[in-house]
Design a protein around this nucleic acid. Structure first.
Lengths: 136, 136
DNA sequence: TTGACATATTCCGATATCGGAATGTAATGT
DNA sequence: ACATTACATTCCGATATCGGAATATGTCAA
């Protein structure tokens, strides 16, 4: 097995940098494939393939107009991603405080190695403990 | 070639559902690996491997305490993701309006196939046509 | 019809990724 | 020193993924 087959999960679809570029490019207005190719400077088949993935997961919408197909980012499909990330918002605010405090304390006395190779911290406090299990 | 080697990009690291679970689980407090294993019900080596990826991209922090290692989500590393998604916020607000209008219009007269298998829209109205070139 | 566009699909090889099983390593207890 | 606990790493096979080249499909124009 490997990943969740890209074509089923928007987190996966967005994991590819080029696809992110495409989404940004198509956010404001619909565009024919040719313009996307010109704008991003990638080979046309490549663009088509990425568009397919994005379309399959609903991240872009498509409309036919004569012999061209107009694509456009479906911004709504990005919301779940945004909301998932927002779940951590309260924590990074917390951390900003903690980091600030830690820095100050560190200046006053010795080092406080967070994330160095090994710390071993023998008996330390175990701060607040027992936080939420906020799972999806 | 394939993807950007997962271990270099947090978008990629987060593309894996289990890793997302781990991040949620470790958001509020640090935990030893054993607890993560117990909580998520995955084999220990698997957890360790995911933790490695997350650690390499900076999505979790680690601290040693005796024979156990305490992991914790580094929420700050999720901010870039959140901000990227936020880039589209203004568009999904737009779209909500457009969709609503379209729905009302559609109810009044015929269908307006958006995104069906093929539309071909031979010569028909093409509503506004020639949309803006508002580039990035 | 034929031909020129516009885009999609298929085939291919190189490389990643994931899970599982087995094994390695460091800290602790006796 | 030895066994045990707590994790990490390695090896492996199955499958995905990506880019490139070639080719197919569909649409308009003469």
């Amino acid at each position: 097995m490997a990943r969740a087959t890209t074509t089923s999960d928007s987190f996966n679809a967005v994991a590819e940098p080029r696809r992110r570029e495409i989404l940004s490019y198509l956010a404001g207005a619909e565009r024919p494939v040719g313009e996307i190719v010109a704008a991003l400077g990638l080979p046309q088949p490549s663009i088509s393939k990425h568009l397919r993935v994005l379309h399959d997961v609903g991240l872009v919408r498509m409309r036919c107009q004569g012999r061209q197909k107009l694509y456009r980012t479906n911004a709504e499909a990005i919301r779940p991603l945004h909301e998932w990330a927002a779940t951590f918002e309260r924590y990074w605010q917390h951390q900003l405080l903690r980091v600030k405090e830690l820095a100050e304390a560190t200046v006053r006395h010795g080092a406080a190695d967070w994330n160095s190779a090994d710390s071993t911290t023998p008996d330390s406090k175990t701060p607040g403990s027992k936080p939420p299990d906020s799972n999806t």
